[in-house]
Design a protein around this nucleic acid. Structure first.
Length: 261
DNA sequence: ATGGTGGCACCGCCA
C-alpha cells in the first residue's frame, strides 16, 4: 500500500479577490500541494496567515503590478527555488518546491500578447530558457512535476474552435513546437494520459465571452506534467469546475492530479 | 458583432 499524493494547479487571477474561494476549495479538497498563478500581490501583502490558519504553509513571489506565483503545501518542503537561471529571472513566474522527494515546478508562462509583439518572442524564449532550467537542475529519470498556466493549448481538441483560433498566441505552431520540445525532454501531460482524444475539456473561460462555461467556449491551457517514473504512478487527473459556480470565479479553474506512490 | 469583463494599476495595461 503506497501513500497518495494530490497536487493541483490554479490560476487564481488575484489571490486577494479569490481568497475565500481558494481557502474553501483547499479545505474541501485537501491537496498536498496547490500551485497558484496570477496572485497579483506584492510579497509584503500576501495573505499568508489565512493559509496557515487552515494548516498550509505558503510560499510566494510577487511584485506590485506583477504576475505572481505561490505554492501552498500541507507539510514542510525539503527545498524551495524561484526564477529561471539567467536574467531576467522572472521570480514572479517560476516557483519550485520539493515535497516527499518530488520536485514541483510551478510556472506562469508569459501569455505573449499578440504574435507580432516583442512579448511573443519573449514567450518563445521563455520556453527555451525553461528547458535549459530543467536540463540544468534535473534528469528525466527524476521524480519531477511541471505545472501551471502554460499559456498553450497543445492540440486541436484543446480549444472550442481550432479553425478560428489558429494563430492566437496560445494556439499556433511556434508555441506548439516549444512546448513539444520540453515534453520530449521528459514530460508527460497527465490530463491527456487519462483522457486520450477527448475533446471539450477546458481550464480557462474568457470573461469577455458571455456564458462561456455553459456554451463550452474554453481553452485547455493549464497543465500538470510529470516525468515517466511519476507519470506511471498517476491514478487520475481531472478539471474541477466546481469553483466556477462561485459568485466571482476566476477565469481559470483548478486542474488536479492524484498519485499512488 | 472585430465587441465583450475583470483586476490592478492609476487616469491605461494586461489577460
Amino acid at each position: 500500500m503506497g501513500k497518495t499524493f494530490k497536487i493541483a494547479t490554479y490560476n487564481v487571477n488575484s489571490i486577494r479577490s479569490r481568497l475565500e474561494l481558494v481557502l474553501g476549495w483547499l479545505k474541501k479538497e485537501r491537496p498536498d500541494v496547490l500551485c497558484m498563478q496570477e496572485t497579483k500581490v506584492p510579497d509584503s501583502e500576501f495573505p499568508k496567515e489565512a493559509f496557515e490558519e487552515i494548516g498550509y504553509k505558503v510560499f510566494f513571489r510577487g511584485t506590485k503590478g506583477g504576475s505572481g506565483v505561490a505554492i501552498a503545501t500541507s507539510s514542510d518542503p525539503e527545498g524551495l527555488l524561484s526564477g529561471l537561471d539567467d536574467e531576467p529571472r522572472d521570480e514572479d513566474r517560476l516557483l519550485g518546491c520539493k515535497i516527499g522527494g518530488i520536485w514541483v515546478i510551478n510556472t506562469y508562462v508569459p501569455q505573449g500578447q499578440s504574435p507580432d509583439s516583442p512579448m511573443f518572442s519573449y514567450k518563445l524564449q521563455w520556453y527555451d530558457r525553461l528547458l535549459k532550467f530543467f536540463q540544468n537542475h534535473f534528469k528525466p529519470q527524476d521524480p519531477l512535476i511541471w505545472c501551471g498556466d502554460l499559456n498553450v493549448a497543445p492540440e486541436q481538441i484543446d480549444v472550442h474552435n481550432p479553425k478560428k483560433l489558429l494563430g492566437h498566441v496560445c494556439f499556433r505552431p511556434e508555441v506548439w513546437e516549444k512546448f513539444e520540445r520540453i515534453k520530449k525532454w521528459g514530460f508527460i501531460d497527465l490530463f491527456r494520459l487519462h483522457h486520450p482524444g477527448e475533446p471539450g475539456h477546458y481550464t480557462f473561460f474568457d470573461y469577455r465571452v458571455p456564458k462561456a462555461l455553459e456554451r463550452g467556449i474554453g481553452w485547455r491551457v493549464d497543465h500538470i506534467l510529470a516525468t515517466s517514473p511519476l507519470a506511471s504512478k498517476c491514478r487520475n487527473c481531472w478539471i474541477d469546475l466546481e469553483p466556477r459556480k462561485a459568485p466571482k470565479p476566476s477565469d481559470h479553474t483548478p486542474l488536479v492530479a492524484e498519485f499512488e506512490l
